[in-house]
Write a protein that binds this DNA or RNA. Sequence first.
DNA 1: ATCCTGAAGA
DNA 2: TCTTCAGGAT
Length: 341
Amino acid sequence: MTRPGLAGELIAWQRQHGRHGLPWQGTRDAYRVWLSEVMLQQTQVSTVLDYYPRFLARFPDVQALAAAPLDDVLSLWSGLGYYSRARNLHRCAQAVVVQHGGRFPPSSAALATLPGIGRSTAAAIAAFCFGERAAILDGNVKRVLTRVLGFEGDLSSSAEEKRLWALAEAQLPERDVDVYTQGLMDLGATVCSTRSPACLLCPLQARCVAKAAGTPERFPVKTRKLKRSRRSHALLWLRQGGRLWLVQRPERGVWAGLWSLPEFEDAAALQALLAAAPGEGEWLPAIEHALTHFDWTLQPHVWTLPTGAALPAGLPPGRWVTEEEALAMGLPAPVRKLLAG
DNA sequence: ATCCTGAAGA
DNA sequence: TCTTCAGGAT
């Protein structure tokens, strides 16, 4: 007689206390599940609730998404961050249409070969849509499992990460994997939070090693720390006759493929470009923007060209758009905020 | 190592 | 208000 696993308790909890009415739940349509999982990868539910319906209305199925211009996809993704997700989403849709006849392949192994679908997302889709017994291991689940199991390994180490994957697979129930998987996600997102877990509400509290030790916040163990550098650039907000000049950012790097204001090394480089330009302008208050690996100061300079004046020599290639057009394009969040006033 | 944003904590 | 942090794939 072995002690029942944690899965049964989690499944019962999920049925009673988990989230059920979310727009991407209650379907086995892999397109919808995939879309929600990718949006949820680095984004909170409340934000995805805002984006998911709009995205689905514009791209109701994988064929529509595959056929759309990347610019349209980026435009609807604008503000969600991590824009490589949107690029991969688009590539993945095309792969599903071209290589799989428009149907998502029904196994986690096949799903994980598609762009933007890693091992954990593949397992989630396979569990929800195809009932496959596949383990997920995203940030929330790492927290739940390391705590309940008292897993002390340092997740900066790939060997320890591998061990945890094996443990995640060992917890899988024989049946109801979809409910179990959703339960792990919901528990991690609501009860087993990073900073102040609500252990008294947790269905696993009686078996949780971390709670027994009195230090649930100590898990998961991660030694590697990120150090952030600083960068500083100038932005040119060039206007003429009710329009402004936007440039498309390179396909690699920060804000890849998004439309933005021309960026310069520093204020001097920007002023050099405008030295011979007619018109007038002024510096606006600096924008502070934090990314994963650096803090970014953006110094916007607004400049109004007289109607009919030629473009300043050396202006990077781009196009004139109205403010309304600009706001419908794929803009980075701080640039959108700046232009929207 | 890189990639973005909003929320939570101080 | 300011700073820190969470969150997967490539």
